[in-house]
């Protein structure tokens, strides 16, 4: 009886262990999926960031009309959405108009037009992922 008691006790404990592991299965599956998604997302993000770059070939301010024209060229390999761009003039985000479509394809140049600008000291263009280009070389024209 004592021998069978030990055997039954061991069997009950083992059953409990197996039941616990079976209950934990779905949670562990969910965990692995989350980690897989996060790793894949981080990897995709790094590739996109690496392929994103742009330059500002020229910034011209017409001191008569107070219109600032900024040329932005996509020098990377990814497409830049122009709605993802912010322009800061003297540290303040300023609305701009653009010609052409909503996207700046690799190699393409777009002109951003800002009205009501005077006394420009610094222009900062911020693109996707917070990548930014800053210039204080503003050509003035009348």
């Amino acid at each position: 009886m004592s021998g069978s008691g030990v055997a039954v006790s061991a069997a009950v404990i083992t059953l409990g262990l197996i039941s616990g592991l079976m209950l934990a299965g779905p949670s562990l599956d969910s965990t692995l999926n989350d980690l897989k998604d996060a790793r894949q997302g981080a990897s995709d993000e790094l590739i996109e960031i690496k392929g994103t770059s742009f330059e500002v070939p020229s910034v011209k301010l017409n001191t008569t009309t107070n219109v600032l024209r900024i040329n932005v060229r996509n020098t990377g390999s990814t497409v830049i959405g122009l709605s993802d761009i912010e322009v800061l003039v003297n540290g303040t985000i300023t609305a701009f108009q653009r010609s052409g479509g909503d996207f700046l394809y690799p190699g393409m140049t777009s002109e951003l037009v800002l009205n009501g600008i005077s006394g420009t000291a610094a222009v900062r263009i911020v693109g996707p992922w917070g990548i930014s280009v800053q210039t204080d070389e503003v050509e003035t024209e009348r």
Partner: peptide, 25 residues
């Protein structure tokens, strides 16, 4: 003794299930 052993092992098994479940959560 047999019944006592059974009760103790059942209690241990339940605790194991609970601990593993909480750990997984």
């Amino acid at each position: 003794f047999f019944i006592t052993a059974l009760m103790v092992s059942s209690a241990v098994a339940l605790v194991l299930v609970d601990v593993i479940d909480r750990y997984a959560e």
